[in-house]
Design a binder for these strands. Structure first.
Length: 417
RNA sequence: GUGGCUGUAGCUCAGUGGUAGAGCACUGGAUUGUGGCUCCGGUUGUCGCGGGUUCGAUCCCCGUCAGUCACCCCA
């Protein structure tokens, strides 16, 4: 057992599992490109203040989950716990809003949260996400939800549930908060310990508590949707009408709240229905954050985004046979022919083929076994006889047949397949 | 942060108070130049780490670390 290990909750991804990741990423890129998004790449490290102000200092993420450290100039830096704040920072820093009215960005990359690892939850984890700046919706809200469902569908993940809700905005949200407090305070003693703590700091969070005694109280609580003002209501109705027009299935969940402070109006979540993920069934979370850009010192700009947890997708992803990674495998009859074999492999690679060889001096049996396992369609055998007559033996590993091919014609023969 | 379960070969796991085994994988051969099937052989371990009980611990006890699952929260 090695003494040097990866950091708890941060995992290696070895070459054998990378094809599945490539698939997740390629299908994501292809899908978001269809919707007009462009990729953005931001640093993994940001000033701590960005997350404190952007995500909110009452959130669990900022309160206890960030990897924060001081660099040598005594600035406080933090490993990004999510992607939205960084994107907003970049959007403002480059004054992108002055150049184009609407920006549609996507990102794929690692995020860091110091939580207790569990199935589908890691300390370094990968998210793919989208952000739209400058469009107040509600059509883009529906577009994003549709995009996520489409993406998952293209991966073969169809057993999902889309939950939507509206948190309202501005005064409506403040009024609701007050109404909720008025309802909850007299019942505070009956709430769970966690919810009692949440009560004053972020009462909305009591609504999605999983504790049984909280759920009973939450069930009778005033509904968010009843407190929306006319504009919020119209926005939410517009979202629903658009989803209906798309034929995208969804469920209105008035108690859907989510843990980040910055959300306004539209909130959504996509959950896997299969049991594979245990308690971490949320595949995707997102929502509108019309206030954040202004809060961070920019011009008031409507914004909406989502993030998908790629590890969780991977758990839900149906298995597929991986594509072969090699076209041909060179085999030499005797160790003395290693240089010939290496040269041949090089020539084939130069011709654009994916080629490997095993020139450690082991037996042909062993070399052919590796050729077989590599998934290569062909083995190219170099032996005494072949060398003498300037040919090579081309063995079709699927069919089990062999043919003699003039060495000069090998490139063409292989390329023609 | 709290609780449960588990740590034996690269992987999946069996096992006994007298310091270890199987299957897979890897590898040699049966076939002095031909994979996938079959057969025969071979390599691989500080039995997670530290301490205690014992003549003796991989096994029993305590601690610790790690993994995992659940809670919390989230992706």
């Amino acid at each position: 057992m090695a003494k040097l290990r990866s950091v708890k909750g941060m995992n290696d991804l070895l070459p054998s599992e990378i094809p599945r990741w490539h698939r997740l990423e390629q299908v994501f890129r292809d899908t978001v490109h269809r919707y007009g998004f462009g990729e953005v790449r931001t640093p993994v490290v940001e000033p701590t203040e960005l997350f404190v102000r952007g995500i909110g200092d009452t959130t669990d993420i900022v309160e206890k989950e960030m990897y924060t450290f001081e660099d040598k100039s005594e600035k406080s830096l933090t490993l990004r716990p999510e992607g939205t704040a960084s994107c907003v920072r970049a959007y403002l820093e480059h004054a992108v809003g002055n150049v184009e009215p609407v920006s549609k960005w996507y990102y794929i990359g690692p995020m860091y949260r110091r939580e207790r690892p569990a199935k589908g939850r890691y300390r370094q984890f990968y998210q793919a996400g989208c952000e739209i700046y400058g469009d107040p919706g509600p059509y883009v809200d529906a577009e994003l939800i549709d995009l996520v469902v489409t993406y998952l569908g293209r991966l073969g993940i169809t057993d999902v549930e889309v939950l939507i809700n509206s948190l309202g905005s501005g005064d409506a949200r403040a009024r609701y908060r007050q109404a909720l407090l008025d309802y909850l305070r007299p019942r505070a003693a009956e709430l769970s310990e966690d919810s009692q703590r949440r009560l004053e700091r972020n009462p909305l969070r009591v609504l999605d508590s999983k504790a049984a005694q909280d759920q009973a109280i939450a069930a009778e609580a005033p509904s968010l949707l009843d407190h929306l003002d006319d504009e919020d209501r119209a926005h939410f109705d517009g979202l629903i009408a658009t989803l209906d027009a798309f034929g995208t299935p969804y469920r209105v969940e008035p108690k859907l709240v989510r843990g980040l402070d910055y959300y306004t109006r539209t909130l959504f979540e996509v959950k896997a229905r299969s049991a594979d993920l245990g308690a971490q069934s949320t595949l995707c979370g997102g929502g509108r954050y019309d206030g954040m850009i202004g809060d961070l010192g920019g011009p008031p700009t409507p914004a909406i985004g989502f993030a998908i947890g790629l590890e969780r997708l991977l758990i839900s992803l149906p298995d597929e046979t991986p594509a072969p990674t090699l076209d041909a495998f060179v085999v030499v009859q005797r160790p003395e022919l290693a240089v010939e074999g290496a040269k041949l492999a090089r020539e084939l690679r130069e011709a654009g083929l994916r080629v490997d060889a095993d020139l450690r001096g082991n037996s042909m049996k062993s070399q052919l076994r590796r050729a077989d396992k590599s998934g290569a369609r062909y083995a190219v055998v170099v032996g005494e006889r072949e060398l003498a007559e300037g040919s090579v033996q081309l063995k079709d590993l699927h069919a089990g047949t062999s043919t003699s091919v003039a060495r000069a014609a090998l490139n063409e023969t292989l390329a023609g397949e």
